[in-house]
């Protein structure tokens, strides 16, 4: 295995473009090293992106949007005084990943590019409308988070492409987000179901909504029908039931030891309701 620590994304991209065999980027390494050790993935080329300038920076831009460096850890996100005020759902979703030790290393980008359908931060990012900047041999492009995963362990990134920034939109007024997951334990487990909700209000009425489901299909889903179910409503009980039904209908889960198809299909509805209520309360400026 060759180890490289390039000083720029252009260099990282060129290294990946010219590499043969299996290539992995190394952010926090909390997936890469586990796969290396279990001999699941034995990279020929490992490209450490942590020596590139600015990869740990969390920046609020003039328009209120946020740019996060691709090596920013979960711990750095949780410790930031303002990021979690704007985007509590995204920060809490990231914070659910692993232990204190894992939080010291794990990144949003690694969670996304590892391609797990159960990745906790991904539904939260999809709901929030997060995009990533991708640097490749032909320059850079901006890609919506929901367009990155294409199946378990697979992404739409092509040879030589590396994620070079995470872009979170401006929060704006009267809006809130939330992420909830179900796991069989209280800590250190993989999501059986995850739900991210982001919404904006005009008075009491929902005027914008994005709902994303994790661990219930081969990729994280952005579910239009869930958004439609709550748009124009004040999140009354009938609306919540319609949201739950739309979430259950969108599921295409697997049966495994951690949750049956029937269980996942039921629980996704329950979590969608709860996450929507939290996002709604946050949009109203309540502490939730």
């Amino acid at each position: 295995m060759d180890y490289h620590s390039p000083a720029s994304f252009a260099e990282a991209s060129a290294l990946a473009a010219n590499a043969t065999g299996i290539t992995r980027f190394l952010a926090g390494g909390t997936d890469v090293l586990v796969q290396l050790r279990s001999e699941l993935v034995k990279p020929d080329t490992l490209i450490d992106i942590k020596k590139i300038n600015g990869v740990h920076d969390i920046t609020r831009n003039a328009d209120g949007s946020w740019t996060l460096g691709v090596a920013t850890t979960g711990a750095e996100m949780s410790e930031h005084p303002e990021l979690g005020q704007d985007w509590p759902g995204v920060v809490e979703a990231m914070d659910l990943i692993g232990s204190t030790q894992v939080q010291g290393r794990a990144t949003l980008t690694g969670n996304l590019c590892n391609g797990s359908p159960a990745a906790d931060s991904v539904p939260a990012m999809v709901a929030a409308g997060v995009t990533v900047t991708v640097t490749g041999p032909d320059g850079t492009r901006e890609v919506a988070v929901e367009d990155i995963p294409t199946g378990p362990g697979k992404t739409s990134l092509t040879k030589g492409e590396v994620v070079s920034a995470v872009n979170i939109p401006a929060r704006g007024e009267n809006a809130g987000d939330a992420y909830l997951r179900f796991i069989p334990r209280t800590e250190m487990d993989i999501a059986v179901v995850g739900v991210g909700v982001d919404l904006r209000l005009d008075g009491d009425t929902i005027i914008e909504a994005r709902v994303s489901l994790g661990a219930v299909a081969p990729t994280v889903l952005l579910v239009e029908d869930c958004a439609k179910a709550i748009l124009g409503s004040t999140l009354d009980d009938a609306t919540l039931d319609a949201l739950a039904a739309a979430a259950s209908a969108a599921c295409n889960p697997i049966d495994d030891k951690r949750g049956t198809i029937a269980f996942r299909t039921e629980v996704v509805g329950v979590l969608a309701k709860r996450a929507a209520k939290i996002a709604y309360a946050r949009a109203k400026g309540e502490n939730a």
């Binding site: 050790r37 279990s38 204190t100 030790q101 010291g104």
Partner: peptide, 25 residues
């Protein structure tokens, strides 16, 4: 594999699992 914490060390003041970090890092 990052599950047990027996390998815990700090790196630049940050608690990490030393089994999940390469020596070169």
């Amino acid at each position: 594999t990052g599950d047990c914490g027996a390998c815990s060390v700090t790196v630049d003041g940050r608690l990490v699992c030393s089994c999940l970090m390469l020596g070169v890092e």
